[in-house]
Design a protein around this nucleic acid. Sequence first.
DNA 1: TAACAGTCAATATT
DNA 2: AATATTGACTGTTA
Length: 387
Amino acid sequence: MSVKSLGEPLGLQASGHEQPQSSEPSEGSQPSTPLPLPLSTLGPTGLSIQEMVAMSPELDTYTITKKVKEVLTDNNLGQRLFGETILGLTQGSVSDLLARPKPWHKLSLKGREPFVRMQLWLSDPRNVEKLMDMKRMEKKAYMKRRHSSMSDTQPVESGLVGTDFGQSSSPQHHPQQQLKKPRVVLAPEEKEALKRAYQQKPYPSPKTIEELATQLNLKTSTVINWFHNYRSRIRRELFIEEIQAAGAAASGEGGSPSVRPGKASEGDSCDGTEMDAVADDSKPPGSTLEEPSAAKAPTPSHSPTLRDPTTSAAEGPGTSGHQVPPQGSSSGLGLFGFPETAPSASSSTSRNPKDSNLRKKKAANLNNIIHRLEKAASKEDPSEWEF
DNA sequence: TAACAGTCAATATT
DNA sequence: AATATTGACTGTTA
């Protein structure tokens, strides 16, 4: 009952915004590559991607990314090329997307776009060929450039070469103002401190933020950003855990261990992992939570019977519940007919089942949940309680 | 207005 | 070289 069947008139906005992002700084390279393009891909049905996204049935983002990774490695295609060419995203973004895709129902329309593109790409094996061709062409162009600039003119900048020792990381002190942002890098201890603060209060008040910034000697905005990013990334970790759990549960234990999504947690992926303290019963000398002043922070004493929100609806992705192609209009390719393949146990080195830190993350998130509950509590309509 | 969702892009790792 | 991580930025959303 969630999705309305398609066939609707779709009120589309013919906004041709593509690339709202970066205000195109200074481009200038690649004379022969009209790449930035997201266009070109008008589905077989002649629909724009946005339209397709709008009518797309639920897709299994986990399965799609898994398949994409498989295809890429099998054909020696890098994610950079794939991302830039097929998805119109940068390498880092693609890496992130492939490693920890959010479940379909948690994605916004915009967020679903890359997945629809992936699905589309996978739907036609010829696409792989095309990408391989591109790879070759790129290499060729690269070689060519090297040659011409090596034996011939040596135009490009490089005032000081050879004379430099080591590597000349030529930051250049050009006349231009140093608008080069230094790129803040938080020290491990700073991260620790922030994580600790997060555990106390996932949503620090401006005042608290101010304090933290001062104490750590960071810009206020850095602290704010850190919290936003941390919350958001932790949330994502939880999503993938849900997926994994669902998959594991669905596949039952007897059969195939199969899916072992990459290496889930381990040391720590993005965050929630530093807080080790777990465990073993022996209580460590210090307290588990060491926090100077627990003074204020009345702490939301009232914590209604919290339940693990992990019990989310959604269906089991694992169990074959695939969506069916919406319309029979099979013009061209089976649009959304899943190319899904059997759980071919691809390599995947099933790492040790060290998911103990799953607990930790969840625990770390309790505060977050409490916060949301409190927020929800102020709402009359329970149906608004979204998690 | 704060929080979020998506990304970018500079660094870090592998 | 290819990938992974992550602070910051832009556009939405409630």
